[in-house]
C-alpha cells in the first residue's frame, strides 16, 4: 500500500463533498491507480508482441497467424505508453473504495459454486450460494434469506429445467 492508496481511503471516507457536482461522481483515484491504468495495458501489449512474434508473421501477401495480433499488440503498446505523459492529469480513474472482503468472499463462493455445480447438480449449490450472499454478504434477516433463496432456487429449476429444458446437471 503506497501513500497514494491511503489518500484514496481518506478521500473515500472523507466528509461530505463540497459541491453537488462532486457528489455526483465517485471520488477520484490516486496517482498509483492512474499509473496502474497505464502500466497494466502496457504490459499486456508487450506480452502480446512477444507471443505474436513466436506465432510467425508470414508475408504480407500471405499473412501468418501472428501478423494481425502483432499489429494490435503494437497499437496497444503505443496507446498505453502514450499515457506515461498524461497519467498525472488522469481524472477518469476512481478511488478503490471499500468492500473488498465481501467481494473476495463473493468470488470464492462463486468459484465453489462452479466446482460443485457439475458434481452434485445445481439445486443444493444454488440454494447455498443464494443463502450465503443474502444472509452473510448482504446481512439480511434469516427469514428473508431462507424465503428468497428457496423460492429463487425453485424458480431457477422451473425456468431452466422445466421451461427452457436446457442441459444443466440436476438432482431431481
Amino acid at each position: 500500500m503506497s501513500a497514494t492508496d491511503s489518500r484514496d481511503v481518506e478521500e473515500f471516507n472523507g466528509a461530505a463533498p463540497s459541491t453537488a457536482a462532486e457528489a455526483d461522481r465517485p471520488p477520484r483515484g490516486g496517482l498509483a491507480t492512474a499509473l496502474f491504468a497505464v502500466a497494466g495495458p502496457l504490459a499486456l501489449g508487450l506480452f502480446g508482441i512477444v507471443l505474436s512474434l513466436q506465432l510467425g508473421l508470414g508475408e504480407l501477401n500471405s499473412p501468418g497467424p501472428g501478423l494481425w495480433p502483432l499489429i494490435i499488440s503494437v497499437f496497444l503498446t503505443v496507446m498505453s505508453a502514450a499515457g506515461v505523459f498524461s497519467f498525472k492529469r488522469d481524472t477518469d480513474v476512481e478511488a478503490w473504495g471499500s468492500g473488498y472482503l465481501r467481494i473476495g468472499l463473493g468470488l470464492v463462493s462463486l468459484v465453489a459454486y462452479a466446482l460443485l455445480f457439475e458434481r452434485i447438480g445445481f439445486e443444493i449449490p444454488t440454494l447455498l450460494l443464494l443463502f450465503f450472499w443474502i444472509k452473510v454478504l448482504g446481512r439480511e434477516g434469516w427469514r428473508t434469506a431462507i424465503v428468497v433463496s428457496t423460492v429463487a432456487t425453485a424458480a431457477a429449476y422451473g425456468l431452466f429445467i422445466l421451461a427452457l429444458r436446457v442441459n444443466i446437471p440436476h438432482l431431481f
Binding site: Y113, F117, L129, W133, I134, L137, G138, R139, E140
Partner: peptide
C-alpha cells in the same frame, strides 16, 4: 435491495 438483486443476477449469469 441490492443484497437480493445481486445474488439473483449472478445466479442467472452463472447458470
Amino acid at each position: 435491495r441490492e443484497s437480493i438483486l445481486y445474488p439473483l443476477t449472478l445466479l442467472i449469469t452463472m447458470i
